[in-house]
């Protein structure tokens, strides 16, 4: 398996830029294993990313990779997918990337139910710029721009995606790497807009400032906080406070955007020439 993962990496690009203890590499390897399991043709596989630590992942992957502008990955990916629907497109974003500067693109990609698989690396912070609060930083937590504690409420990415129209929504942590891989596979197989939130650790930009320890300790924290969808069903809202519900959270049925556009083409082909 390891060699198969390696075959999809641009090994000449290593060492990577991520800090010791960073969880991004775990998400990256889960994605590669998922693509391997899906059996996708690398020549027809596209990975689009935004800006931030997580978005550097695209550059390490031996597919058609596009490292775009901050927040805009889904809009670029929409252009690629609509222009060539036969391509399999994954979109890698950070939490600030996807839900702050890219929030508009995120809800509209979900609303269109365009067949993209979005993986959001949620480390609760802007890591690359050194630890500023994001829309996913929990209230009360500290960041360089929230030195007295964050007073903003945070988004629930899964609820946001569901509410906006995504037809597959799931969450895992980097501790649950195998689950993450399986959720990415299921998300990719969904013909529509799929969102997989990957809870990942940023010990340098977030953990340190919030006394959460090193990367290993943060992984263990993920393990402790995580409850499966099944377990969560039996728990009260109070018990679920501060817990991370993992697993497949939502599946919906809706027509997919590029398929509907192909129908318009079939209907109008040869007209208006």
């Amino acid at each position: 398996m390891l060699s198969q993962v390696e075959s999809h990496l641009r090994s000449d690009r290593f060492p990577h830029i991520w800090c010791p203890g960073c969880g991004n590499g775990i998400v990256l390897s889960a994605l590669v294993r998922a693509i391997e399991e899906l059996g996708y043709d690398p020549d027809k596989t596209v990975v689009v990313s935004g800006i931030g630590c997580s978005s550097r992942a695209a550059g390490y992957l031996d597919f058609n990779t596009l490292h775009t502008t901050h927040g805009r990955a889904l809009a670029f990916a929409t252009g690629i997918k609509l222009a060539r629907p036969e391509l399999d497109v994954f979109v890698l974003m950070g939490d600030g990337d996807a839900t702050a500067i890219g929030g508009n693109h995120f809800i509209h990609a979900a609303r269109r139910n365009i067949d993209l698989t979005a993986i959001i690396f949620n480390n609760s912070i802007y890591g690359m710029t050194g630890g500023q609060y994001s829309p996913l930083t929990p209230p009360g937590k500290r960041a360089t721009t929230a030195p007295y504690g964050n007073i903003e409420r945070s988004f629930d990415i899964a609820e946001l995606a569901k509410g906006a129209g995504a037809t597959y929504v799931a969450r895992a942590t980097t501790y649950h790497a195998t689950m993450l891989e399986k959720l990415i596979v299921a998300g990719a197989r969904n013909k529509g807009f799929s969102v997989i939130e990957a809870i990942t650790a940023c010990p340098v930009g977030y953990g340190r400032r919030n006394k959460m320890g090193n990367g290993l300790q943060m992984l263990l924290w993920q393990k402790e906080q995580a409850v499966t969808v099944k377990q969560a069903e039996k728990m009260s809202p109070e018990e679920l406070q501060d817990k991370i519900i993992i697993g497949e959270l939502y599946r919906g049925e809706a027509p997919e955007y590029t398929a509907m556009y192909e129908e318009i083409i079939a209907r109008t082909k040869g007209k208006n020439q």
Partner: peptide, 18 residues
């Protein structure tokens, strides 16, 4: 698209796809 920024991005994506 949802805004002008996104339209420019989509155009670039489509062009890259040929």
């Amino acid at each position: 698209m949802e805004d002008e920024i996104a339209s420019m991005a989509a155009v670039i994506g489509a062009s890259l796809a040929g």
